[in-house]
Design a protein around this nucleic acid. Sequence first.
RNA 1: GGCCCCGUAGUUCAAUUGGAUAGAAUGGCAGAUUCAGGUUCUGUUGGUUGAAGGUUCGAGUCCUUUCGGGGUCACCA
Length: 937
Amino acid sequence: MEYNFQEIEKKWQRYWLENKTFHTEIDNSKPKFYVLDMFPYPSGAGLHVGHPLGYIASDIFSRYKRLKGFNVLHPMGYDAYGLPAEQYAIQTGTHPAITTEKNVARYREQMDKIGFSFDWDREVKTCDPAYYKWTQWTFIRLYNHWYDLQAGKARPITSLLSIFISSGNADVRAAVTPNWFHELGKKDSAFGPGFKGMFTAADWNSYSEKQQQDILMNYRLAYISEAMVNWCPELGTVLANDEVANGYSVRGNHPVERRMMRQWFLRITAYAQRLLDGLGKIDWPDSLREQQKYWIGRSEGAEILFPVKDSELKLNIFTTRPDTIFGSTFMVLSPEHEFVEKITPASHIEDVRKYIKETANRSDRERMADVKKISGVFTGAYCLNPFNGKPIPIWVADYVLAGYGTGAIMAVPAHDSRDYDFAKHFKLPIIEVVSGGDISESSYDAKDGILVNSEFIDGLNVKDAIKAAIKRVNEMGIGKGTVNFRLRDAIFSRQRYWGEPFPVYFKDGIPYVLDDTDLPLELPPVDAYLPTEAGEPPLARAKNWKTKDGYPLETNTMPGFAGSSGYYLRYMDPRNPNEYFSKEAVNYWQNVDLYIGGDEHATGHLIYARFWNKFLFDLGMAVCDEPFKKLVNQGKIQGRSNLVYRLKGSNTFVSHGLKDQYEHSVMHVDVSLVSNDILDTQEFRKWRPDLADATFILDDGQYFCGHAVEKMSKSLYNVINPDELIEHYGADTFRMYEMFLGPLEQSKPWDTNGIEGVFRFIRKFWRLYHDDENRFRLSDEAPEAAELRVLHRTIKKVQEDIERLSFNTAVSTFMICVNELGELKCSKRGILENLLILIAPYAPHLSEELWQQCGHNESITTASFPVFNEAYLVENSFNYPVSFNGKMRFTMELPADMPSAEIEKAVLAASESAKWLEGKTPKKIIVVNKKIVNVVV
RNA sequence: GGCCCCGUAGUUCAAUUGGAUAGAAUGGCAGAUUCAGGUUCUGUUGGUUGAAGGUUCGAGUCCUUUCGGGGUCACCA
């Protein structure tokens, strides 16, 4: 029987399905291992060869761990809410659930063909009410908790309430919305213009229900707030910061503008420090941890109050360099700063208002487009250096952001490049206070040097000066050392249809959450997937969108990251109708041991999931502080495009090597018309009507195409579909080839040519187990030492490679092994059965089939991974290369266990040595056991 | 512009972490099989490890400089 992969693969895929081979249950007799893939959004385009790369790697690892005796949790599901299905619904009226269901079925079919060992009984879909019930459930918990900074964890809002009732909020240290009392003071005059957010028990008890709720809202971990948000008019919704890049939406690339809106937020900033600290405890790629670290953006510094001249006001600024305070030659307020109107004298107010109006009209995108453009205006006001009372002019400029720190800075042009550029532009003085640079050339930003011109901190180095300055600031009561984070609270509502409804209703304009018993709150049908005439979100179209008692329900829906934040926990106990997941399940499965996915989620999903997990950890539900112990980013598979060269103004195409002799333009050609960079000119003519009469200038009788590595994309005609490859070569070859392409973490171009080599290897492997007539044959003779050596070298290498996720090198190890066994004409059961187990994670169908032919009735997945035995590799002699002055001159066979001193003697005694010593005494002899001998003359 | 990663046969990757004459696969070439192409088999050709210095008995591996490629962030005080 020929190696018939189509039959074999179908047969075993059916077997695994029917026998539930990969069904997993809690088994306390075995150690657990949790391998997770980032679940996909099922798009209409199906999988291309880039998608399964990570899945194949994780599948190999899962199968390997099972062979090693672990109970492996390896689930798969779908991140089913997403814009494409909804955009399609808007265009066609097809309910997104229908589109999604269809795409899910297609994904499943494609994945099944690759032979994955997922436990499909655990499949989850984020749009399934049985699933999103728990997303809503978690939201209710977030709403009903506040973050106690003293305790360093989330606590029930009821505990806060009882503190307020008994002693007000003087002693509460909580994560709150910065300056929340400003908004409240404006909104509700009852709090008075002087309201600073402090209240006593008596105050609290005198507040109305609405006032109390308004205050509590600023403490909740899920809260509603009026804030500047990213509004995307094209998509008709707001977006979170990570969903916006350079002023455009990441999905769809539509313009985004800033807008003041009332939205739901998650108070992820409460966890900023813990999210940062946790990065040190997890085994993640450096680049990813760096990205998160930067996104969280912790900076230590000080807030310092500068009295405004001729005023009661004190300007609060944030700086990380309090040591440079004597070099501060001007102050800068963000255009939105509340002081701007208050301090600007009448003489300057017109200029200032004009400037603010200009900057307000500039969108973020415009600002980003010309970051180099310096603008600002002098307010005419001054403030005083709190140490020596020197007056400092106050400016307004949009390079200072309202949302970071206090929205105001002390500018130190000598030691901050932005301040430097600004000072140069407006001809403001520059005073050096840290030695080490040349401030006539540029600012000296380094935290390295000795303080000068700085009164009490003169002569100190920067580090000590910062400490000394903060100490003095504290003593004088003019500020305090503080920590700032760049991380912002996550905007959690979307004005879209296709997402989880909020379990929230409104009573007298105050939001309340539903009872758990009312969950899931199911997504209602609507007559169109568009906003209402009045501009309300699509859910406002739903009939009877209110509670039993008639209160209106929230019409926003949750964002994409809501459902993906806790899915790994639900996989542990996916069909539990009573709980998110059982205590027993989470105690056994703990957290994810290996998580594989793309790094585009660095500042989105991966930070939200960590936050979500930490919150559930505070509730005592998650048992680990971090959700994903080890994480690997698989590289992207790039497309390899083929190019042809058309002569200007003609339908003649010139071969790659000759193109420079002609004036030509470059054109992409469908890679299916090209093999080995040689164009099939017949097919090319049929490709498009306008090419039917194409002529060619050939090189050596053939048309050679150029090639380029770029994104895999339809428009570049370089998309490779896995189904066709599997049809052609089989899933086992496809799996091995995807791994063979290169290191998992690296991005690499797809090159279909190489797959032939792997296919040949697979057939060669098959022939090891068959005779020339293709009859199965294995001998029961005892293996010879040479055969055992090959096997055990392979066991060792393959195991080491899998453990460090170096799948590509494992594949080439198999190739070497098969070549060597082929040379030895090995057909011994004692060798080849072990080899089957080794390769089973990589080529599961092939190995199941051969395993069965070997006479086994059980699936090979129940076998044990062969144990490496060093004894078979031990050689009793070693052929030492002997070098003189680093140059290898001859080799010498010596006993492997010979001590160094005797090796020295033996080498010097050797007849060849005399020639190279030339009668001189060796200066030094280096002996590295079982490696090398080097004689220095 | 800041930070991070990578440069090894034509191509994609190895090289036991500082130890032999840098190895595989693929490609190329030649031969056998075939009416021919494909397949299969056999043999063979590919390298100044991007460049220049340095450390060392010994460098692809460590250090410095430089060139090239990729990623990421980008007014965050």
